[in-house]
């Protein structure tokens, strides 16, 4: 695999962000979430100043919402049967549809084009389980508060417990793709580990919604 220029740039961005976070930490002891750049996630510790547990819990989710509302997530949690693509969230071309199993219609399956891994020379994203989130898990166009209520509702979250959500967001490798989308796509903010930490903190703090 060739290391291309855009990878280097992303790497550069991430490094800069880390330095910046450290800088803030050394000044104030803890960075507040509002100091965190859009493409990074504030760690749970940075919410310690919020005294009200429910408000703090909701704040964890608001921070996590930066991930959930990123195009990396909403494009394949679409409001219709048709996914979107790219940072501009345009309708997926070619036109593909959910199908009965979320993996496309009989003729144009996700796996026809999406392989087991990204193929960067063509800017093609891939994962062995590439598919759409079920219709009831549609996030496209919703607010973070709406997504929060939705994500806690087993009827609309794929029957998941809160514990399952930690695993889904924190460990699922298809979700993890959002942080490694290949050239030409903005990764989801932060890292999957940082997102997981926020989910854990949110669940442990009572899973309040903003």
């Amino acid at each position: 695999m060739t290391m291309n220029r855009r990878h280097l740039l992303f790497l550069g961005t991430v490094l800069t962000v880390s330095v910046l976070t450290v800088g803030i930490a050394s000044r104030n002891g803890l960075a507040t979430p509002t100091d965190t750049p859009a493409n990074a996630l504030a760690p749970p510790e940075s919410f310690a100043t919020i005294a009200d547990p429910a408000a703090r819990s909701a704040a964890y989710f608001t921070e996590l919402g930066k991930v959930l509302t990123s195009p990396r997530c909403t494009n394949c949690h679409p409001a219709t049967d048709r996914p979107r693509q790219g940072d501009a969230r345009r309708l997926h071309q070619p036109p593909v549809y959910r199908g009965v199993d979320g993996m496309g219609l009989a003729s144009l399956r996700c796996s026809n084009c999406h392989g087991g891994a990204n193929f960067d020379p063509a800017g093609m994203p891939g994962h062995p389980a590439w598919h759409l989130a079920p219709a009831e898990m549609a996030w496209e166009g919703r607010t973070v508060a709406q997504i929060c209520e939705q994500i806690k509702d087993p009827a609309r979250n794929g029957g998941r417990s809160l514990q399952d959500l930690i695993e889904h967001i924190g460990d699922d490798t298809l979700v993890g793709w959002a942080w490694h989308p290949g050239p030409g796509r903005m990764p989801a903010p932060g890292t999957q580990a940082e997102a997981k930490a926020l989910v854990i903190a949110w669940v442990e703090s009572g899973a309040a919604c903003p």
């Binding site: 399956r109 796996s111 026809n112 084009c113 392989g115 193929f119 063509a122 093609m124």
Partner: peptide, 8 residues
Amino acid sequence: VTKPTCVA
């Protein structure tokens, strides 16, 4: 199945 060859 069909597969596009340009992206794989």
